[in-house]
């Protein structure tokens, strides 16, 4: 399993990367940690002819407090999230979720920006950012724009990110109130069969691997906001979702898991 041949350029800055994206067009791909892209290239499911390495942009690897939110550089690695004092104090859920991604070696390479751009509905961190009400800062030829996580994901491995844009920062509202993350899988290193992220006591509930994108459990959130019990709200967790079927689960079982895990997450978050 060997990638098809490609050319490789190191981006000197975000601006440089965007310029290169413009030059090379849609046959080019940004390379961050590479832990989603390189396996796909080895299986030749992805065959970009030009890789633009943004993984060396150390000035995009940071976790800072800033006006009530936390600003995280796109090239911040999962391992940095996992060990961040800032997150431990101001957003422990993101820290915890980062510690559950893949395995330690994967977390040493994978980046938050790369994970979000990859938009895998089975990934942990996109759902966490969604539940936390995060904002994604994308930079393109015409400058930066901010995209709410709820507007970002559009389909399997698809987002609103334009071909010549890259994620440069993720903003997460600071908050330590009532959070929990439930990840159900068969092996520790695997993707979630279903995952549930609960933020702010249940104001944000998002689901992993329950559709073509990370999705908010809107019905459950609304029920809870309307005063429903945790059990009643959790019973609505899968409403409106279109869960996929694979070797581990069909839609019915996934929906069941979403309800069970949502109840557990809400109970833990409010316990």
């Amino acid at each position: 399993m060997i990638p098809a041949a490609f050319d490789y350029t190191v981006a000197e800055s975000a601006e440089h990367a965007i310029q290169l994206l413009g030059e090379y067009g849609d046959e080019s791909k940004l390379l961050a940690g590479g832990h989603s892209l390189i396996p796909m290239m080895k299986y030749r499911l992805a065959t970009p002819t030009q890789l633009i390495d943004v993984g060396r942009l150390d000035d995009l690897a940071y976790i800072n407090r800033s006006n009530g939110h936390i600003a995280i550089g796109a090239m911040t690695k999962h391992a940095q999230l996992e060990t961040s004092d800032v997150l431990a104090a101001d957003c422990p859920m993101l820290q915890h979720v980062a510690s559950l991604v893949g395995d330690p070696a994967v977390r040493h390479r994978g980046t938050l920006g790369g994970t979000l751009a990859h938009s895998d509905p089975a990934s942990d961190l996109p759902a966490a950012v969604l539940a936390l009400g995060g904002t994604i800062v994308a930079q393109g030829p015409n400058g930066q724009r901010e995209i709410a996580a709820s507007e970002f994901f559009t389909g399997y491995f698809e987002s609103v990110l334009a071909d010549d844009e890259m994620i440069v920062e993720v903003k997460i509202p600071a908050g330590t109130a009532g959070w929990n993350y439930q990840k159900f899988n068969r092996r520790a290193q695997d993707w979630a069969i279903v995952g549930v992220a609960v933020a702010d006591g249940g104001k944000g509930i998002s689901l992993v691997n329950m559709g073509s994108t990370p999705v908010r459990a809107t019905a459950a959130e609304e029920a809870l906001a309307g005063g429903a019990s945790i059990a009643d709200a959790a019973a609505l967790a899968a409403d409106g979702t279109e869960p996929p079927a694979d070797l581990n689960a069909d839609a019915e079982y996934r929906s069941h898991l979403a309800r069970v895990l949502t109840q557990r997450a809400l109970e833990a978050a409010n316990g």
């Binding site: 399993m1 490789y8 590479g34 390189i38 396996p39 299986y43 893949g102 330690p104 070696a105 040493h108």
Partner: peptide, 25 residues
């Protein structure tokens, strides 16, 4: 070939990485 087994683990700048999922460049 899927970064699953870790047989290729080396230390890159002091951290464990799976060298089958890192390009030499």
């Amino acid at each position: 070939d899927s970064s699953s087994c870790g047989a290729c683990t080396v230390h890159l700048d002091g951290q464990s990485v799976k060298s089958c999922t890192v390009l030499a460049v």
